[in-house]
Amino acid sequence: MRAGLAGDEGAYRRLLRELTPFLRTLARSGLARAGRPTAEAEDIVQDVLIAIHTRRSSWIASEPLVPWIRAILKHKLIDFLRRRGTTGHIDIDTFAEVIAAPAEEPGIATRDVVKLAESLPSGQKAVIHAMFVDGHNTQETASALQMSEGAVRVSLHRGLASLAKMLRGSI
C-alpha cells in the first residue's frame, strides 16, 4: 500500500489483487448473515476496491492496513444492505469464523461499471473507456485523446468519483 501511495503501479495492482479474496470472503459472510444471496458479494467487492482507491489517503501510513480495509468494507456492506432494505446489526469483528470462499470464483459483478460510465460527461467517458475497455495506461490515453496526462488523471479521478456515486444510487 505504501508503494501504491507512492505511485508504484505494479505493487498497487498486486496489493488489490491479493486483497480481493479476503474482501470476497468478508462480503459473502456479511451477506449470509443478513440473509442475502452471496452472489451479490462481487458488487460489494468492487465497491470496496473503488472506495479503497478513492479514499486511500485516509489510511495513515504508520497504522496497520487491515483494520482500515475492514472498516471500509464494513461501511460499504452496511451501505449496501441499507439500500436493499435489510436491517440488522452487522458485527464484522466476529467474522473470524468465516465461511471459506469457494475456489471457482467468476469475479463478475451483476452491474456493469462500463455501462454505467455511458452516462458520464463525454471527456470522462472517453478516458474511462480508453483505460478500462481498451486497457491503455495514462500516457497512451493522453496521446490517443490528445489530452495532457494531468487532464487524463483529473478526468479519471472525477469519473471514478461519479461512478462510485452512481453505484450507490443504482443498488
Binding site: 469475479g107 463478475i108 461499471v113 474511462i128 495514462t138
Partner: peptide, 14 residues
Amino acid sequence: MKTEDLITALSRDA
C-alpha cells in the same frame, strides 16, 4: 465487469 479488470484500471490510476 470483471473484478480483475477493475483492479487493472484502478492500478493504472496509481
